[in-house]
Write a protein that binds this DNA or RNA. Structure first.
Length: 882
RNA sequence: GCGAGAGUGGCGAAACUGGUAGACGCGCAGGUCUUAGAAGCCUGUGGGGUAACCCGUGAGAGUUCGAGUCUCUCCUUUCGCACCA
């Protein structure tokens, strides 16, 4: 064994050994309970960032740990390879997105492999591979057949200069990112997935996902946004009938049907058909509607925007009183939710109240507080009373409480055919059409005679041409004759392919199922998917809490409905890892753009008195502004290249730093000294094994067992044994149950400190002492194997074992080692720590109590008085109350 | 506005079920080795006090023999949703 720890050599030989043994290939027929460990696959952006260096080792620790626990582990990896950045890079460099993407994949795969991840690379996939996206298309066709996928017009961002559709992220402050032209809204036909059909299922099932963070479940529940209410029809008044030329009713949705008797007007969204009809008669209304359309891009401002509106001049009749109510167009009513129309009850809704005050509309109080006091809502009006309560001035409903009134009013409406209870969701159907090149083609052919014809299964996949280079002016597929022109599969006439591609969220909605059915060219999934699914542990960023995780759940449910997979839910346990943060420094010059500086080039000191941060740039010695901590990003200049980290210290140091500095779910602060600390620990670990081995060789297991069984152990030896076995149990619990790795590492550090002390001890060179130390070092190496696998692979062999630590069964901690002769009991007086006494292990409460009361340090506090009460907590402490 | 978290030394953090607050690491200080430095190694390190002790987990109250942990009020902060009728 070499004296110096050389990470490059150690990592090279460990990785070569794993590859030679094909160590991480997953086999469905292997023994052990299955364990599917999955980290969210990366987008091949070019190179790994620090977030990846944290994320993937987290999954790897679990995968390696579970393998040592005897589980049959699958840990696959792939590439989320379609998407906009490839098109942008293509435009910048003139390279086709396919080439750019595949080059990036090759490079990043090398980086991932150098991290020593226990991945089954034989199942690797990229979503831009035709044998993957073929099945997107295949399932899309099944969804069309089932009516789950359908076509309707949708709104897109249109750049009038480039004559192209823009993705939302290409719209900045309402302007196109390249042209800076004001973006327009356009209505075009698009395909949708009917996720709202599954809204209730998806929401209800959240309650049965105990392995998901509460936070994520809440976010999804809010996103789905279920609310129970009543839909109410307000019949058209005479004037409305005349204007529209037909009879009918204006439908609204309300969760506060109890306030129906207080409705004094009805408000509709600017895009509502009634508003559009009225606008034909009124110029100022048409102008107002245009204004609303313009302003509607910045969603964050909407909530604070001033309430505005105009009357339509039309009226509707109150469904119960037949009273005529005016219809207004209001900017606070959303077309996208409910019916795009609301009944306005100014007395009991803040928004309606604000609006009514502004336009002098009547306010009518119909609910008072339960105690009968409702003076706050009588004139002069100050605010709306939004709480539930008892109904007043509400005809036959007067005196009912709000909940009862909702039922009674819904029933009354039902009798007249003017309303019914209904559940409303915030969730919209999922529009999947993208007017982009680098994505999965939607398998539809447009025939002049037959209309939209699905591509027959036998013609799948519809291959995306890989040699096109986008130029910013529209979708290159529409200009590619060989892609565009085809024959109608139904009538044979000349036809055109659909040029829209699918949202990349479609690609990532089922890749975890394909990993489990890798290589099957006859079916999307097979029985292997039922073996591996659901994913036992899914790991990824919180930024995917809603869209990706909801779409994947939806897609899995669709496949479940179609009988393709047994599980309705894809991910049993979810771990959302925190981000990697670094300091941000900048200067803002008098003219020009803000300039950012890498934290490595800046000295940051904090004044202990004022707590003010002072940052100076080392190169010129003058001040820079400290912005605080933020995610590592190129634009803020605070990134650290993973290659610089692994190149200098090795993958194990990188992994240890990531696992030790913070628990997985928390954000982690980049810290150069912390990396050095991690590296220092690995060198100490190496040296501890080296010292042990060079002082007389590794002690064979038989001799260790003999020494333990015999009677030769000193009390120092027994203490070390106990520490080792306690560590073993703690690490197993921390990784296996708590999913907290920093404390696991800390406990191994303690063990190593104990080994060092034990070795330095006068009797440390005795054969029995060496045997105990051999065992302790083996335990330390075993505990660290999931976290720093390369160095452990090497040290395990140095300790006299073979090269298969990766599949060595985790040791059970020895109960005999944990037994203690004496235990220390803490003695408190009135809850304050006053002393410690040592008693025999398993001593009775009486003995412990007597020992505590006899202690001189304790007696001082109740000299001459009798303790009022003595509480004994078994094995821990005694509290004397005086 | 609504919802979910978080607040502990100079710093990252630990304390899981109410039971020794600050494990482990970083930083810092002193010592040792060295021609010197780097790297090691050893010791110390929440604040106050010569000491006995006292004070300390954002603030204030409460429950309890005992509260970082439970309850209430408030402050600060992060994240998500945001005119959702």
């Amino acid at each position: 064994m070499q004296e110096r720890y050389d990470p490059a050599a150690v990592e090279g030989s460990a990785q070569a050994a794993w590859q030679a043994a094909n160590a991480f290939a997953a086999d469905e027929s292997a023994p052990g309970e299955k364990y599917y460990c999955l980290s969210m696959f990366p987008y091949p952006s070019g190179r790994l960032h620090m977030g990846h260096v944290r994320n993937y080792p987290i999954g790897d620790v679990l995968a390696r740990f579970m393998r040592m626990q005897g589980r049959n582990v699958l840990q696959p990896m792939g590439w989320d390879a379609f998407g906009l950045p490839a098109e942008n890079a293509a435009m910048a460099n003139g390279v086709p997105p396919a080439q750019w993407t595949r080059d990036n994949i090759a490079y990043m795969k090398g980086q991932l492999q150098s991290l020593g991840l226990a991945i089954d690379w034989s199942r690797e996939l990229a979503t831009c591979d035709a044998d993957y996206y073929k099945w997107n298309q295949w399932l899309f066709l099944r969804m069309l057949e089932q009516g789950i996928a359908y076509k309707k017009t949708g709104t897109v961002n249109w750049d009038p200069v480039d004559q192209t559709v823009l993705a939302n992220e290409q719209v900045i402050d309402g302007k196109g990112w390249r042209t800076v032209a004001v973006v327009e809204k356009r209505e075009i036909p698009m395909y949708y997935f009917g996720i709202t059909k599954y809204a209730d299922e998806l929401r209800a099932a959240l309650d049965h996902l105990p392995g998901w963070p509460e936070r994520v479940r809440t976010m999804q529940a809010n996103w789905i946004g279920r609310s129970e209410g009543v839909e109410v029809d307000f019949p058209y008044g005479e004037d409305t009938r005349a204007l529209l030329g037909r009879d009918g009713a204006l439908r609204v949705f309300t969760t506060r049907a109890d306030t129906l008797m207080g409705a004094t007007y009805v408000a509709v969204a600017a895009e509502h058909p009634i508003a559009l009809a009225a606008a034909k008669e009124r110029v100022e209304l048409a102008a107002f509607i245009d204004e609303c359309k313009q302003g509607s891009t910045m969603e964050a401002d909407l909530a604070t925007q001033e309430k505005k509106g105009l009357p339509t001049g039309m009226t509707v009749r109150h469904p119960l009183t037949e009273q005529l109510l005016p219809v207004w167009v209001a900017n606070y009513v959303l077309m996208g939710y409910g019916e795009g129309a609301v009944m306005a009850v100014p007395a009991h809704d803040e928004r309606d109240f604000e609006f009514a005050q502004k336009y002098s509309l009547p306010v009518r109080t119909v609910v008072g507080s339960a105690s009968g006091q409702y003076d706050t809502v009588t004139a002069p009006w100050r605010e709306a009373y939004g709480e539930a309560g008892l109904l007043v001035d509400s005809a036959e409903f007067t005196g009912l409480d709000s909940a009862t009134a909702v039922n009674a009013i819904a029933a009354a409406l039902g009798q007249r055919g003017r309303g019914a209870r209904r559940v409303q969701y915030r969730l919209r159907d999922w529009g999947i059409s993208r007017q982009r090149y680098w994505g999965c083609p939607i398998p539809i052919i447009h025939c002049p005679d037959c209309g939209d014809v699905p591509v027959p299964d036998k013609d799948l996949p519809v291959r995306l041409p890989e040699n096109l280079v986008p130029d910013g002016g529209g979708n290159p597929l529409a200009k590619s004759a060989s892609f565009l022109h085809c024959d109608c599969p139904r009538c044979g006439a000349a036809a055109q392919r659909e040029t829209d591609t699918m949202d990349t969220f479609v690609d990532s909605s089922w890749y975890f199922l394909r990993f489990a059915s890798a290589g099957n060219d006859r079916a999307m999934v097979d029985a292997r998917a039922d073996y591996w699914l659901p994913v036992d542990q899914y790991i990824g960023g919180i930024e995917h809490a809603i869209l990706h995780l909801l779409y994947s759940r939806f897609w899995t449910r669709v496949m479940h409905t179609l009988g393709l997979v047994k599980t309705p839910e894809p991910f049993a346990n979810l771990l959302t890892q925190g981000m990697v943060l670094n300091h941000i420094f900048h200067r803002t010059p008098a003219t020009g753009r803000r300039q950012y500086f890498n934290p490595a080039d800046v000295d940051l000191t904090v004044d202990p008195a004022t707590r003010e941060a002072k940052a100076t740039l080392r190169s010129d010695g003058s001040t820079v502004t400290y912005e605080g901590l933020g995610t590592m990003s190129k634009s803020r200049g605070n990134g650290v290249d993973p290659n610089a980290l692994t190149g200098k210290f090795g993958a194990d140091t990188a992994r240890l730093f990531m696992m030790f500095t913070a628990p997985p779910e928390q954000s982690l602060e980049w810290n150069e000294e912390g990396v050095l600390g991690a590296n220092r620990f690995l060198r100490r670990l190496w040296k501890a094994v080296f010292d042990h081995v060079s002082a007389g060789g590794a002690v064979p297991g038989t001799l260790v067992a003999e020494a333990i069984a015999g009677n030769a152990l000193s009390s120092a030896d027994r203490d070390l044994r106990r520490a080792a076995h306690q560590t073993l149990a703690k690490v197993e619990d921390d990784i296996g149950r708590r999913r907290i790795f920093n404390t696991a590492v800390a406990s191994v550090m303690e063990l190593l400190n104990a080994v060092g002390k034990h070795a330095a001890d006068a009797a440390g060179s005795q054969p029995a002492a060496r045997a105990v130390r051999q065992e302790a070092l083996e335990i330390a190496v075993m505990c660290l194997a999931p976290i720093v696998p390369h160095v452990c692979h090497e040290l395990w062999q140095s300790l006299g074992h073979g090269g298969e630590l990766w599949r060595t069964r985790w040791r059970q901690s020895d109960p005999a080692a944990l037994v203690q002769d004496a235990m220390e009991i803490v003695v408190q007086v009135n809850g304050k720590l006053r002393g410690r006494v040592s008693v025999a292990s398993g001593a009775s409460d009486e003995v412990v109590r007597a020992a505590a009361l006899a202690d001189a340090a304790v007696r001082r506090f109740f000299e001459g008085r009798e303790p009022k009460k003595v509480i004994v907590v078994k094995g821990k402490l005694v509290n004397v109350v005086v």
